[in-house]
Amino acid sequence: MYLAATSSLPLRLYQWTEQLFTDLGLPLWLLAVLVATVKAALIIGFILINVIFLIWLERKLGGHIQNRLGPVYTGPFGLLQTVADALKVLVKEDIIPAAADRWVFMAAPLVAFVPSVMIWLVVPFAPGVQARDLNIGTLYVAAMTGCTVPALLMAGWSSGNKWSLLGAFRAGAQLVSYEVPLILATLAVVMLAGSLSLNDIIRAQQESTWFIFLQPLGFVVYLISAIAELNRTPFDLPEAESELVAGFNTEYSGFRFAIFFLTEYANLLGSSAIAATLFLGGWSGPFLPPFVWFLLKTYLFVFLAMWIRFTLPRLRVDQLMNLSWKFLLPVALINVLGTGVFVAL
């Protein structure tokens, strides 16, 4: 059982529980299950709290960018707006269209939600505070983000709605296309660090400098691809409001829609955390505690994504593909090549 050695409190807690288990004569696999559950609960709690804040932030930021106030009525500065909305959405009737493929329709939001949480398995919050330091961390992240495609396809296909279908097709094409430059951008970072483990990448950045300075091109490619992966403006084609009504989630309402919404923001948070780790040195930084640094850097990326969202118009389907295959991919390849030469020297 791996657990961080450097942070003492969780370690002591773990040792104490282990002692308790041996004293009571309980099997140790039960302990492993307990620890896993606690970690999962902590991570999901972290995600939920942050998502609530993120949605509020997006609306507030969007409001002020657009000379509006944003939410103001619920709680101080409207902070509880998301809570109110969530409550509203949860008590709504669960509508499943008659034309829908029932089981697929019901499963799709969950299939979308699970990978967005799974990413957090390898995210290093602070030195040693990590659910599991996989030695193939970055590969794992790429694999997990790739899992969103089937969920969106399921949602679009099963809705029995033409707009949903179009949205799902767009989502499929878009996510697959942008996965490639995203991974190539990550690859350059991995080459610099010499490891796939996210912890090692942070340590490599502590030794040299933040990779954003060594990899400006890579960062730009990552930023664009990540925003495309997140289906956010200017790449929000799968749910392009003005074109496809609401794209793949046209027919979703109530808590199923809420789960999609939650997934979207959990993914944003996840991608931001990964970006902070890969390019901004993760939790490393002076003066402030590592966890604060981690949050700050994550939210810097979140702010960037929101800022872009409220500035740019949306691309068209073919332009989206062109941008990925004809521009980002070559740039990413050149970047990888350059990094290779740099590392070899």
Partner: peptide, 21 residues
């Protein structure tokens, strides 16, 4: 073009909102 657009939105972020409650 993109940078100019972002500067516009960034400037407006600190403007007084024109709406009222």
């Amino acid at each position: 073009g993109v940078v100019k657009g972002h500067l516009v939105t960034f400037r407006n972020l600190f403007r007084r909102p024109v709406t009222y409650r």
